[in-house]
Design a protein around this nucleic acid. Structure first.
Lengths: 227, 227
DNA sequence: CTTGACGGTATTGTATACAAATGTCTATCG
DNA sequence: CGATAGACATTTGTATACAATACCGTCAAG
């Protein structure tokens, strides 16, 4: 039985501010003051500061030379590298998970995979559900890898711009392929084949990069056409 | 002209607590209270909490289920994995650095490499100097890689146990080989060969792992002999 | 003897007040 | 007109007081 976690103010602040930044309500490069963030999250500055520390570590917020806060603004190179790093780290996570995953977790992955399929096959595809389940899938692998270090590092590689990109950009075909890759990961885990698992995961992330990349290009061209 | 950085209390606390943990004065698994840490670092609890957040991110300090603080205690598997992750990330850093390093930085690496040689060649070898220059060497590569993400992640992979191991454990031969590898890295950077740089760095870290590993084994055997 | 409830104590969490520092605007001088 | 010094406003940093929570020993019931 799960117990409801006590709602600590610093966690509330963390969630609210993170939401504020990721939702795009905050412009990249925009200054944030602690007081403003305190107002937004409805708590005092003290827990806000703790939340900001965490977000700063995830590089969603950056500090100027003299401690003023700004919404992070990522270059194309930053984003490229994030995918490279995610490929390495999630590949490693998959490799470890293949050795240590429990039957319980394997079943859970299967269930999620079913939901992923369902989300894709209905029309129109339920992209929001897909993204939620996708995230859960990867979280379980991370959990199965049993590495505190990976668990601390991977959250730094959340892709702000990907989240912001509207759901409509995803094509059914791409989602189908993604779901297939999830199935193959489960197969690799079932076979306890760490090399296979790593290879599938690396390829999975890399493909996501190319989907994102071409989508970003389309996006840019459209904007230029509108000018 | 460099200006003396203003001594903010939270930085003082960070340095002092980090020193306290890494020096081994704190036992792994030992509880730490904020007040105790405040006493140690001579500031109030507020900046201590900020320092603790940072150390928590580096996994030098861990929190129990209900927010009590403890000195991190790492398993053999943790340490193994740290070397694996360092291999991947520093390899990646070297790969990037090979493409982007400046002439200025290359010169700096050469100078440091000279000092590394000097520290090894004198007898007995100046291990403290070696470690200091070694750290500086790797920091410059990290700087040259120009990746905020790498810069945030690599500090999580500082090897507490390695630092704690006494200097005397290092053999001259091992230090010499290490110095040679640094030279080869410089050569790879000079050639702007990112694959070469990555390979040398990966091998460099991996060798360090084996040196550490056999040293740890010796250490353990000695302890058992003493019982 | 074990188990579970209770209450005191230790520890962490939050708000607030104030200090220090940074940024900005303006007036004055070259 | 441009530069610069200085006053003022804004923002971050720190200490402290108090609130909330978790831990631990004790005692009573089974």
């Amino acid at each position: 039985m799960e117990k409801a976690t006590s709602p600590r103010a610093s966690d509330i602040a963390y969630d609210k501010i993170r939401q504020f930044v990721l939702s795009g309500r905050a412009e990249p490069g925009q200054q944030l003051t602690e007081e403003q963030l305190a107002r937004i999250s409805g708590v005092s500055r003290t827990p806000v500061r703790e939340a900001v520390r965490r977000l700063e570590n995830e590089l969603l917020i950056v500090r100027s030379d003299s401690k003023r806060l700004f919404v992070a603004d990522w270059s194309a190179d930053d984003i490229d590298e994030m995918f490279v790093l995610r490929g390495m780290l999630e590949g490693h996570a998959a490799s470890r998970a293949a050795r240590t995953i429990s039957a319980r977790q394997l079943e859970e992955l299967s269930r999620i995979s079913d939901r992923l399929d369902a989300a894709v096959r209905c029309s129109p595809p339920d992209v929001a559900a897909f993204l939620t389940q996708n995230r859960r899938f990867h979280d379980i692998i991370l959990e199965a890898a049993r590495s505190p270090r990976l668990s601390a590092m991977l959250p730094m590689l959340v892709e702000q711009p990907v989240v912001r990109r509207t759901a409509a950009q995803y094509k059914t075909e791409e989602l189908l392929q993604s779901a297939r890759e999830h199935r193959e990961l489960i197969a690799a885990f079932g076979a306890r084949d760490s090399l296979w698992a790593r290879a599938v995961m690396t390829s999975h992330i890399r493909r996501a990069f190319h989907v994102f990349s071409t989508s970003a290009k389309r996006h840019k061209e459209q904007r230029q056409a509108n000018d």
